[in-house]
Design a protein around this nucleic acid. Structure first.
Lengths: 255, 255
DNA sequence: TCAACCCACTGGCTTGAGCCAGTTGTAGGC
DNA sequence: GCCTACAACTGGCTCAAGCCAGTGGGTTGA
């Protein structure tokens, strides 16, 4: 043991050993790690210490623990790649939402739940971008949950102006041909420019529950604004994606 | 205690209590949480259980522990907002890199370390995008570390073709006026289109060390490709950002 | 043949104890 | 007035033990 290694806590040493076993290919995706009790014995540590090592790896997103079964090396899979062309006219002409398009491309069965559609007071960031009053019930909030083969993939909150949505199919779960963008176009808003603001963070416990996220998987949050032919923002959506399943791609000309 | 609450482990209960104290504003950003020992006593649990509760909050990025001082509510700060205009000619004309521009805008002192510039075998994803052989030393890899007021913010690995970089300032830390894009322009590559591929993940231990990241902070990884007037990719960069400090923004027309 | 049951295994969670290592305020000496 | 040393805090890490709750293979009995 070198001095550098001995300076590290035992749980780190065990975690590093497992990590390099994974990186070297000695342990492959889907393989089962030794049990916590076995690790403890092998490294001459207490079970809690071995457990802490496994927790470190889980936190890094390398492994996943399954109660009663064991701890497994996580499969690297990034299924959904949302390109900036997801908003293009060509794709919208198919009548499918970006999510349905992507699911179809992958041969997965998409499902979309609409847990709620309601008039609400907008969050501050949404109010700013949609240019509506922040302290009134000035928006309609459509919350959608997206599944691929029954696995939860993303949570989307869409906001449109209440005065425009009132009495239209925008208040209904089934929003008609071409989805909500079809309705918004009928209201005179042709999507001309889009603005996507992207951050990454850890999920809230609520999001972790909905998305079925274990420790070690962040979310990608995209705050999307649609601007019409006059530069007027007419729709804002917050996409919360599982980061292990989702990638984003933007292609654009340099000005 | 309701049945829903009692079904939860004690550590979760303590964590939830602290979380709602934070969300309600009872505990504000920068405030110190009760010590682990105090929490244990207050909730009638062992210190390890209180400790586990704090760990849960840290994993969610809500609090930060400081050895010998205490556990503090994390300040929400997102300083760097890289817009898609960071590649624009107007900004490049300033002679500043996007990072220097952004730092300047915020009144921070930028520092850029160049730990290594070397001919290397490219990673597979880079080779694909730069259209070079993946099994030869076909690229020059420039690794940069970026600091704002001496705080590490991002790690950037830039790759250009070895046959083009050979013998030019692209092999030097000081790459001359307008940076590497200036040199690449002299080689006939005018940046015309860009492609950014974005994912979020937890940092590797190495990245966590360089960026000074504690538990609960993911990274944003941007794989950037520059395409010239002929659609030829001439430069690929991998940006690894601290997600707590960085946001990305893309504005583009709908086709 | 098949279902029910049991048992040995897995991780999940908690306890209570102890020692270590940073931090910070204070009492004491100069 | 200033510095030093110490003491009382903080979190960091480990141990050993125990009970609980899923899982899955094998045995047993109808």
């Amino acid at each position: 043991m070198t001095s550098a290694e001995s300076a590290q806590p035992a749980s780190r040493r065990i975690a590093d050993a497992l990590r390099s076993a994974i990186e070297s290919g000695e342990l492959r995706a889907g393989d089962k790690l030794p049990s916590e009790r076995a690790l403890a014995e092998r490294y001459g540590a207490a079970r809690n210490t071995a457990r802490e090592a496994v927790r470190l790896l889980a936190e890094q997103g390398l492994v996943i623990a399954q109660h009663g079964r064991g701890v497994f090396v996580r499969e690297p899979r990034r299924l959904f790649r949302f390109g900036s062309d997801r908003y293009s006219l060509a794709n919208r002409a198919t009548g499918l939402t970006p999510f349905r398009l992507e699911a179809q491309r992958q041969g997965k069965v998409p499902r979309i739940d609409v847990p709620s559609i309601a008039r609400e007071v907008p969050p501050r960031d949404v109010a700013e971008r949609l240019d509506v009053p922040p302290n009134q019930e000035s928006v309609v909030h459509r919350e959608n949950h997206y599944f691929a083969d029954d696995e939860p993939v993303q949570i989307v909150s869409t906001y449109v102006r209440w005065d425009e949505a009132q009495g239209t199919l925008l208040m209904e779960a089934r929003s008609g041909p071409n989805g909500i963008y079809g309705r918004l176009e009928e209201l005179g808003h042709i999507m001309t420019n889009i603005r996507d603001e992207i951050i990454a963070r850890m999920p809230t416990p609520h999001e972790a529950t909905i998305l079925g996220l274990q420790s070690g998987i962040p979310v990608l949050e995209v705050l999307h604004t649609s601007l019409d032919q006059d530069g007027v923002p007419f729709e804002v959506s917050r996409y919360v994606h599982r980061a292990d399943l989702t990638g984003l791609k933007y292609e654009l000309p340099v000005q």
